Simulated assay, not measured.
Amino acid sequence: MIRVLIADDETMMRAGARAILSADPEIEVVAEASDGREAVELVLRHRPDVALLDVQMPHLDGLDASSAILRSGVGTAVIIFTTFGKDDYISRALSEGASGFLLKSGDPRDLIAGVRAVADGAAYLSPEAAHHVIRGMSSGRTARGTAARERVGRLSAREQEVLALLGQGLANAQIARRLRLVEGTVKTHVSSILTRLGVDNRVQAAIIAHEAGLLDRVE
């Protein structure tokens, strides 16, 4: 069972998200919060697998709440869920360790898919958010590509294969199947990749994989 916390200052939005997630028998909404401060407190109390956070909330906005949750060490993954698709929101959320970014205007199926993917250790961006990220990477890819390739060059050949698949958004179990490895071995590779790249999470590693052109090699 995937345990989820929903934080949004609008009662109807919380109810809508709960209704969508409740359609999946393997997802349980264990708590709801109406502001960022309450969201952090409830995460510490309930330790859900995933926290779904709106950006604009009173007392503590979703981005600051996300940072507090990720720093707490409880192991809860964060998805930012908002009406705003601004590049700076997306960039900040991902750079600070959020595992997903969803727009409220998107397909309701993205919400379930996102929660499932993030709970399984993968990253998830809605199609609209992915467009923003790819556009941002494309605008400065030449400058950042050289640095990214240097960082990726420190990895072993196998780690580069794992990183390329991680960059596609695959979870550990999916990577294990593609490379015919034991899932535990993939977890070890992912941990090593994050350390050697000097990043905090899979999303940041995936961005480096894109910038280095690793996904161009994936068949």
Rank of each mutant, 00 (worst) to 15 (best):
S95I: 03
T195D: 11
D8W: 08
G62E: 02
D120E: 12
R109A: 10
G153W: 09
V43F: 00
P48E: 15
A77Q: 15
R92C: 04
D35S: 02
L102K: 08
R217Q: 10
T185Q: 14
R116D: 06
G167F: 00
L214F: 01
D200S: 13
G16S: 14
L21C: 00
R71G: 03
V218E: 11
K86G: 13
A209K: 15
S126A: 13
A7R: 05
E161F: 07
M13D: 13
S126Y: 04
R45H: 11
R141W: 04
D88S: 14
T142E: 14
S95N: 12
R109T: 09
D88W: 15
G169V: 02
P25A: 15
E161S: 14
V186R: 07
P25V: 15
L170D: 09
G145D: 09
I79V: 10
R18H: 13
G114K: 11
S192D: 14
P48H: 03
I90A: 08
A148G: 00
A176F: 03
A171Q: 13
K104N: 06
L165I: 15
G114S: 15
R217F: 10
A77D: 02
V55W: 00
M12S: 15
G85M: 14
A119N: 06
S139P: 02
F81E: 02
I175N: 08
Y124Q: 12
V4S: 03
V29H: 12
D64Y: 09
L42D: 01
E161Y: 14
I208V: 15
D107W: 05
I20K: 01
R116F: 00
L44D: 09
I112G: 02
Q160M: 15
A33W: 06
A39I: 01
G36W: 01
R47P: 02
I90E: 00
L155A: 07
H46Q: 11
T11H: 15
I79C: 04
A98P: 01
G85H: 14
A113H: 10
N201H: 07
F84V: 12
A176T: 07
S66A: 10
A129T: 12
A15N: 02
L60G: 00
A143M: 07
H210T: 08
A31F: 02
L170P: 03
M13Y: 11
A164I: 03
D88Q: 12
S67R: 11
A143P: 02
L52K: 06
T11L: 05
S156N: 06
L197A: 10
A65C: 05
E96H: 11
D216E: 13
G106Q: 07
M13S: 13
I6D: 03
V4N: 01
T11Y: 01
T11A: 15
